[in-house]
Amino acid sequence: MPNRPLEDLAGFSAAQVALAVAATLGAAFIRGLTGFGFGILLVPVLALALTPVEAVLAINIMAGLLALTEIRLILREAERSALTIGALVVLATAPGLMLLDATPPDLARLLIALIALSAFAAVLAPKRGPEQPGVVTTAAVGVSAGLLTGFAAMPGPPVVPYYVGRAIPRMTAKASMIGIFGLAAMAGIGSGTALGVLEWRIVVLSLALFPLVLLGNWVGSLAFGKVEDAVWRTCVGAVLGAAAIAALVRLV
């Protein structure tokens, strides 16, 4: 049997693995810097090499493992609203994954890219006061984030404005988002398993990429808090917008 270490990593080609490595490292850096952006950045890119379902499940596995390494930060710094939103995300994730599985791959890739593009506008929206939004708004954020978790591994578009768009400490916003995204990832993994769409080769690929996630997240965390807030928001928004536009261009 010929030796092809990169040609058959759990059934993925060398080109697919190379794209996954580069995209994962970059997305993990942004996640470490901001507390969000991992799925928003990575899904549109991975979905060009893998099927949308494979991309979403792989990212959920990596994001879930990463959140477990930061559990102390979450418990210490997160806002109470994160628990409510996280619980609703868990309930709404399975319907989102079922919708993704029933959507043609090309249409799913387009919708995922558009979802990522929406995060660009959300991050750059003007800041509000520190007051926590009401029950209806909080519930809407949780349900929509759950649906987007299942469909695109992207709970970020509704969650990011909820926290980053308010005048609260950056660490509180980051820890709250990390906690919600961790629960979202776990829900995505559970839903994929229950629906029978989580294959072992996706697990293998995710575990192989996870050391890169840890590395990129660590480097990004070193830069967290060392830039002014306005610069931080602008840079992150620009990265998110560029990722979504790149995915759209590839689709066209």
Rank of each mutant, 00 (worst) to 15 (best):
N3H: 14
N3D: 15
L6P: 09
D8G: 02
A10N: 00
F12E: 06
Q16K: 00
L19R: 09
A20E: 03
T24P: 00
G26E: 06
G26M: 05
A27D: 05
G32M: 03
G32P: 01
F36N: 04
F36D: 14
F36L: 05
G37H: 03
G39H: 04
L41S: 12
L41V: 08
L41F: 03
L42R: 00
V43T: 14
L48S: 13
A55W: 03
V56C: 07
L57K: 02
A58F: 06
A58W: 10
I59G: 03
N60M: 14
I61H: 06
I61Q: 07
M62W: 05
A63T: 12
G64T: 07
T69C: 02
R72E: 14
L73K: 11
I74Y: 04
L75Q: 11
E79K: 07
S81T: 15
L83G: 14
T84R: 15
I85H: 01
G86N: 07
G86C: 05
A87R: 06
V89G: 07
A92R: 09
T93Q: 07
A94L: 15
P95D: 00
P95T: 00
M98S: 12
L99E: 00
L99Y: 06
A102H: 12
A102E: 01
D106M: 11
D106T: 14
R109C: 09
R109T: 09
L114Y: 04
L117H: 02
S118T: 14
A121S: 10
A122I: 03
L124Y: 04
A125F: 05
P126Q: 07
G129L: 01
P130Q: 12
E131V: 04
Q132N: 10
G134D: 13
T137V: 12
A140Q: 06
A140N: 04
V141K: 06
A145K: 08
T149M: 11
T149A: 11
A152H: 05
P158V: 06
V159D: 10
P161K: 05
Y162L: 02
V164F: 12
A167C: 11
T172Y: 14
M177E: 07
M177G: 05
G179M: 08
G182C: 05
A184G: 15
A184H: 03
M186L: 15
T193M: 15
A194G: 09
G196W: 04
L198K: 00
E199D: 13
R201G: 03
R201W: 00
I202K: 03
V204H: 02
A208Y: 09
F210E: 08
P211D: 12
G216A: 07
V219L: 15
F224M: 02
G225L: 02
K226E: 14
A230W: 14
A230P: 08
V231Y: 13
V231S: 15
R233C: 03
R233W: 01
C235G: 13
C235N: 11
C235H: 11
V236M: 15
G241M: 00
A242T: 13
A242M: 08
A243Y: 01
I245R: 01
A246R: 11
A247Y: 00
